[in-house]
């Protein structure tokens, strides 16, 4: 592993506030070029404080943050702005500002006293708009953008700042599933194509498991790092997120409610239809078994009424949808 890939190193860092005390300490981590790193942890555990400390927006209580080997404490804010850009959780609300203007503000560290954009600045701004797919909306007022478009515009502003590191604080909060997926994959693409080191906090474990090169998990006043799969194997994800009511499933990377399922039902069939019927039956509190002599749901592929409910000593009933099937199961209270 080459050391020059380490664009950011964190050594024995302690974060928090003098007034309220330490949130986490003994933090030793590295951020590498071309890698997407996800920061996870429960609400209020210090994710934003940690990110702000890396950006020199908060002071560390102890330890060092090194950009390319240089302590940020000794770098002035303009130098930090050339190394690291930021997308915060704050909504940007400026009436009359258009997307292009917002992205162009990202050129702040490069322009003169009057903020005039040079030809090079303009082409970088346009490139950033194109990267996030907003080139057609560049004259739109930012107050008229959807949440997803606004987040893209914020990311484009960070891209225009042209820094090797981008830090984002919950870029997928407030977004719908489609936009969440697209934003995270946009970040992944930027890491690969532009060799950037991107760090972002998120609660979206499902997407993180798919795309993150590395996870940083804040837990018990400390931060651990590793590939998402390492975190599953070491049991850390389960330790952080499982509770009395929730069970983390390492196989699928999703959470399930802990439920005692005493009632059993037999399910036969195959394919997609089988998979989703199984999920649905489990959702209403049954466990699926292969035992003989109990109630059974048979899945027939390729017909309209493909869900057949067979109850011993009763007539078979056919259903056309999972919804109707579940209603019947609930009604007769198997």
């Amino acid at each position: 592993m080459k050391a020059e890939n380490n664009i950011l190193e964190i050594k024995n860092l302690a974060i928090g506030y003098k007034e309220t005390g330490i949130l986490a300490d003994g933090i030793n981590l590295t951020l590498k070029k071309g890698e997407l790193t996800g920061l996870i942890g429960l609400n209020g555990i210090g994710k934003s404080t940690f990110l702000k400390t890396l950006l020199k927006l908060n002071n560390p209580l102890e330890g060092q943050v090194l950009f390319e080997g240089k302590n940020i404490k000794l770098l002035d804010s303009n130098r930090v702005a050339l190394l690291c850009s930021y997308v915060s959780t704050e909504h940007i609300r400026v009436s009359e500002m258009i997307v292009y203007e917002l992205v162009a503000i990202g050129r702040y560290p490069y322009t003169g006293w009057n903020g005039k954009l040079s030809g090079k600045d303009k082409s970088i701004v346009e490139e950033a708009l194109w990267q996030v797919g907003l080139e057609k909306l560049m004259n739109r007022k930012i107050m008229q953008l959807s949440d997803g478009e606004r987040q893209r515009a914020s990311i484009a502003r960070a891209l225009a700042q042209d820094t090797p590191i981008i830090i984002l604080d919950e870029p997928t909060a407030f977004l719908d599933i489609k936009n969440r997926y697209e934003i995270i994959h946009l970040l992944k693409r930027l890491c690969l194509e532009k060799e950037k080191a991107i760090l972002f906090s998120s609660h979206d474990l499902g997407n993180l498991m798919q795309v993150a090169d590395k996870l940083w998990i804040i837990n018990n006043s400390s931060i651990s790092e590793g590939a998402p799969e390492d975190m599953v194997l070491s049991g850390l994800l389960e330790e952080v997120f499982s509770s009395e009511d929730l069970l983390f499933n390492p196989e699928s990377g999703i959470f399930l409610e802990r439920k005692e399922s005493s009632k059993e039902i037999k399910l036969s069939g195959e394919g997609n239809k089988y998979f989703w019927t199984k999920k649905a039956i489990e959702r209403i509190g049954f466990s699926v078994s292969t035992k003989e002599g109990i109630s059974e749901v048979q899945i027939v592929n390729g017909v309209n009424n493909g869900f057949i409910l067979k109850i011993p000593n009763n007539e078979n009933v056919e259903f056309s949808s999972i919804y109707d099937l579940l209603r019947q199961i609930k009604r007769i209270n198997l």
């Binding site: 702005a81 915060s88 704050e90 940007i92 400026v94 503000i105 009057n114 903020g115």
Partner: peptide, 23 residues
């Protein structure tokens, strides 16, 4: 006029402004 560039960046909020190098 001297402060106008900084005010443009501050429109986005102080954290954003600081992250772009505004004192």
């Amino acid at each position: 006029i001297l402060s106008a560039k900084m005010l443009n960046a501050l429109l986005l909020g102080e954290n954003y402004a600081k992250s772009m190098g505004v004192n």
